[in-house]
Design a protein around this nucleic acid. Structure first.
Lengths: 409, 409
DNA sequence: TCACTTTGTGCCGACTCCAAACAAAATACG
DNA sequence: CGTATTTTGTTTGGAGTCGGCACAAAGTGA
């Protein structure tokens, strides 16, 4: 069934940017697409038609809601309802997740979460891929690629996990290679018949990417994201829509900024590092609670903050202490990176929501100029943003060059 | 004298990249240019001819040195000997400098340095421009633009100096506007008859840019530059050949990284900041010397280090102390930025050269992974690199789009 | 001197994309 | 209810780039 496709005569170079605009919700109509791309209506029309022919977007000639504006209504652009998906997976301290994520960051299907993490990365990754295969079979969707979020720095270009402490993997585990091999063994193939490519990235990095494209980071040019999951603190920077991972993928390892010169010594050799001053364990300790083994540290800290912040002075004091420490760390990052927006995740999000004024005041006071101090600090807004970010990795080749990535032309 | 130029039929988009290659010495011949641009020989030929017609480069059909290689020798590319120049200026704690800098970072003419800095920025800038006018008149060169290096963070997009403490200017002085107005008043005009554009930037930022293009930073993708001049410590980051100045020009304010948790309090509210632990005054103090008023602190520290490092134990101890502090700061930056090269300037350069092994060991030990610790740390290699970097600012529009910048076509 | 290698140049054709003219679909207004 | 106006979609012609190819030029090596 070799379907004859009309050859694209114009807008080839605008194909990727156009898809990215629809993907991030910045091009609801063809008229907006024309303006955003800076091309003629003819080119935008060809681009939209080609993306529709590729099965990626839908072009609705008949707009349902009358907008009330003058002139001929523009065609509406949306994500194709049964288009291809990316396989997204996340390994975390308490298990793993897998899902299928379409364009626009929409989760199409989710696998029941698994709650055990064997120390062997190959086993976990095989299990993740198996869950993905099941989802693909159940939904019958095409797969454009796969992304894996891990709680560890991922070295580039090797794709190895450098410090996967939370999942007790050996340092330097070749996660991307394991992932790609597992995908190939499972027979997950793209439209071109080749096994899909597997990507891997740090969970906080991917969360930042997802928030930039579909969440609270929209439109930011220099987006800083800081989050704490179970232990330690992670950071990420999205510059002009691209993850900044440094020359070897190791950037934004923000856990060892000094935020309390008189604080306890850290294993890194310094003292009072952000890692041990502003994570869930630090919060529980500061509030005088003994962490229990039943649920995750993050969950315990969250519950404590939500339930006793208003009533227990020790919890309030612990909250303020962590806000001050976190604020100091953020101020240091503001001085170095000068972001135009900051997004907080994990327990840091709860700290921000508990007392946003205090955190903003600390950052403003300790960063060097009031102007930088005025940087907006927002909570993250997406559920499972690391998972969505993992899908972004897989979608990226399609966003960069749809024709090449889908093996057409 | 409207000279009839043959219209450029190909290679228009490659014009800027081609000029950048010649500018940075990466395209010595037309054959190399062809390979680096990834275009056909015909296109590269048209590009080289166009740049020659613009008076920017020279194409030598007759190669002087026979390379001994087989085949037809390629035409040699070099900077046009009497081409246009950029006006470069630098204001520092002890006075100002002005020079004309051609493509390739070559200083064409230098004004005698002036050694007084009135507190009024308008006066200094007028004096700088006056020196530039004299140089332009003496040499008869065309001027493509002007750049000014100041010892202060420069806010973008306003072009205001935020903390010009060393020159006793008022905070927020609109240096770029003063510079541009002074240039226009002095009648410095480009080929198109319009007054040339004036740019302003932080001196360390511009030094980093110059080192990346013409010095020790060549080829680095993520270049970190740290330097100390008279007081305090400055930093800069060059990402993929472009200065990274953050969202408002305030990035890389590295002076307030904590490098000595037990150190003295800093005016920023923290203690043991890099600013007060690793600048020339800190060195003199650590060596037990009283700074004198006769020459600059930098000069005193340099002289002391050069002359007494080998003989005076106190100087050696002070050197090691500052190396350890600086190393800690660099390690923090490595953890956040993950550069692939570090260049040190000012007194930090001397510290590196006094004991390179110690500094590298400290950075490797305190940055999180040995791989990052293995980042090369080099001394800067250019004389007056801030001045050359100021010229780079002025050259940038020409490097981006030669035809548009020179008002042709 | 001739074969070989590498580079420079002219010409053709393919590929993009803008500009302009025209068609279509809504609102505004009499 | 019909016409003018506004805005958008579509078609067509033509111009601007640039790769590919053939050929010329300028060296080296035998």
């Amino acid at each position: 069934m070799t379907q004859t496709r009309t050859r694209l005569e114009r807008g080839r170079s605008a194909l990727g940017p156009a898809l990215a605009l629809v993907h991030t919700g910045r091009a609801p109509t063809r008229a907006v697409l024309t303006a955003e791309l800076g091309v003629t209506r003819a080119t935008a029309g060809a681009v939209a038609a080609e993306l529709e022919a590729l099965g990626l977007i839908r072009v609705d000639s008949r707009p349902l809601g009358a907008a009330g504006a003058q002139g001929r209504p523009s065609h509406r652009l949306s994500i194709a309802p049964h288009g291809p998906v990316a396989l997204a997976a996340q390994v975390h301290a308490d298990g793993f997740r897998a899902a299928l994520v379409g364009l626009g960051g929409q989760t199409v299907a989710t696998a029941p979460g698994c709650m055990t993490v064997p120390a062997d990365p190959a086993h976990v990754i095989d299990a993740v891929v198996e869950a993905g295969v099941r989802l693909l079979r159940e939904t019958g969707r095409r797969c454009v690629g796969a992304g894996l979020a891990v709680p560890s720095a991922v070295a580039e270009p090797e794709g190895t996990a450098l410090n996967p402490l939370h999942v007790a993997w050996p340092a330097g585990a070749p996660v991307r290679e394991l992932f790609s091999r597992s995908l190939a063994a499972a027979g997950i193939r793209g439209d071109d018949g080749e096994p899909v490519t597997g990507f891997a990235g740090n969970d906080v990095n991917l969360a930042a990417l997802a928030e930039h494209r579909h969440g609270a980071g929209g439109g930011a040019q220099h987006l800083l994201c800081v989050a704490t999951g179970h232990r330690g603190v992670g950071g990420a920077l999205v510059l002009d829509g691209r993850l900044h991972t440094g020359s070897a993928g190791l950037a934004l390892e923000v856990g060892h900024l000094t935020v309390n010169p008189e604080g306890p010594p850290c294993h890194c050799g310094s003292r009072g590092c952000l890692d041990i001053e502003a994570d869930p364990l630090a919060f529980l300790t500061a509030a005088g609670r003994e962490p229990g083994p039943e649920v995750s540290l993050l969950q315990q800290a969250r519950d404590l903050l939500r339930e006793e912040y208003a009533t227990a002075p020790s919890v309030r004091a612990a909250t303020e202490q962590l806000i001050d420490r976190l604020g100091l760390g953020l101020a240091g990052l503001v001085n170095i990176l000068n972001p135009d927006r900051i997004i907080l995740g994990g327990l840091h999000r709860e700290l921000l929501e508990a007392d946003p004024e205090r955190l903003r005041a600390v950052v403003a006071e300790r960063s060097l100029w009031g102007r930088s101090g005025g940087v907006p600090i927002l909570p993250c807004t997406l559920d499972h943003n690391s998972l969505v970010g993992a899908a972004e990795l897989a979608w990226q080749p399609v966003l960069d060059d749809p024709l090449a990535a889908l093996g057409v032309g």
